[in-house]
Design a protein around this nucleic acid. Structure first.
Lengths: 113, 113
DNA sequence: TCCTTGCTTCCATCTAAGTCGAAATGACAG
DNA sequence: CTGTCATTTCGACTTAGATGGAAGCAAGGA
């Protein structure tokens, strides 16, 4: 993943409706959802939703497939993983920070319980 | 994490300089970096950088601490984890998708090698 | 107290993104 | 070939975010 791709992906997610769409598709899983069903679930006008779906698709966070008259959209988990990986690259300069993604700093954190 | 918080965090990261700042602080780890050092490393004017640091700080992705004359900034890994968790919430409707964050769809993906 | 250093706030300007109705496109049934 | 349904594209409008120089504020050294 490169910087511009990451910015585009983050920009795509940084919007109320697109974030809702992405999360909906994440939860829908492999089966995906048709554009109309998404618009229905979210209460967004078709033209607006189409605009947002196009953006998410352009940056690779979701994918599109025609099925009869409907367009089925699916979340692209690989792209999401790449994005998170980019954000956490060289976490703590490669120090121990054992966690998978978190790289929690050990000494600053002070658990009250 | 709630929707508005996620959108604010994503918006904060969806900008060239702020993304660079955050990644720099992720790599700097617990030791953090002073504002001046960040500006120096990224070649961004002080006033612009201060604007961006304030945004990242406001949404909780980084934290601030005064140390003598300098302000030390640190990445907030917990907030980042919360954001990723929110994005992947109820991944695949809770189906197997064994991966921690990834939730890779098994049938669509086709590894060429 | 006065000065220097480090960082932030203010301001005006410029550019980009979101919204939604109406019309166009693509796919299929009869 | 024609009608209908699902979705996208177009267009005009409105609002928000980024930029950087100059001035202001806080913290320490002399």
């Amino acid at each position: 993943m490169q910087a511009v791709a990451a910015i585009e992906a983050l920009s795509a997610l940084a919007q109320e409706h697109r974030l809702a769409v992405f999360r909906l598709l994440v939860q829908a899983g492999e089966q995906g959802m048709a554009a109309g069903a998404i618009a229905d679930a979210l209460g967004v006008p078709n033209s607006s939703l189409s605009f947002h779906l196009a953006q998410l698709n352009r940056v690779g966070l979701i994918s599109q497939e025609r099925r009869h008259r409907s367009l089925i959209y699916r979340a692209n988990y690989a792209e999401m993983n790449a994005l998170v990986g980019y954000l956490m690259e060289n976490c703590c300069a490669g120090a121990d920070c054992g966690n998978d993604v978190g790289c929690e700093a050990p000494t600053i954190e002070r658990k009250s319980a």
